[in-house]
Amino acid sequence: MGCLAHRLFTGLITVSFMVLCVTGALAIRNPESEKRVDVKKGIVAFVEVRSAEPATLYIMYPTQYSKYKTAGSVDGTLEFRNITWLIYPVPAMLEDQTLHFVMKGETRFDVVYEDIQDRINRLMKGEERLRAGMEMSVEAGINVVRLTPLLPGLKIALDFSKDARFIIIKTIDLARYRKGIKTFDQLYSEAGLKGSESGFNFSTTDFEDLYLLIETPVPIRVKSVIHATKESAESGC
């Protein structure tokens, strides 16, 4: 559980588990494992998945999970590849929500819950609250990492395991890059958000998706941590 609890949560409720650690966290030792998370109306669950080695995670709604169990299909599910850390919020704004997490790899799994109204009140009073986060392994070369979903006023902290050259661009520039219309160097010369170091902090100004293009000579880990603020709450956090 560690840093997550200290940074954010008002309470800790764990779901059914295999091994309960002294910290209250769940350590799942199987290379493949599943967890079900039930969230009551009015609550947001923050699911934390950690892995020493890059793992693949599938997030499924009940009907998708049934299909997975009967046919082994992960079609239509939310997939995260090569992750070593993930914070995924599951808000139950209007009704109870159930999600299944299927992990391929040795992972630790935690869930903490927060009252949505309390969270909004805290944000409106000016507190900053963890909203989402992800750490993943990227190969040597130029890699693309999507930073989403975004709202105006979010605070984003990027942290790399080694210095790397990076830019943060909008969708249309990603399309131009992928199409070969613009090179990384061209985009780097034009970009407002860029650097050549091991970290970067910035705030979002609108709803547009952003993409991190990162160039590294060796495989590294890329971490993004997103905090909600009063401004983002006013935009519909």
């Binding site: 009940p62 239509g76 704004m93 999507r146």
Partner: peptide, 27 residues
């Protein structure tokens, strides 16, 4: 909208509508 996600997922499954989340069309 997000709060309807669970209901929509069931509805789409039952109607044999393929769903690809987190896939933004750029071109």
């Amino acid at each position: 909208p997000g709060p309807l996600a669970q209901k929509w997922t069931g509805v789409l499954e039952s109607r044999n509508i393929n769903y690809m989340p987190n896939s933004k069309v750029i071109e």
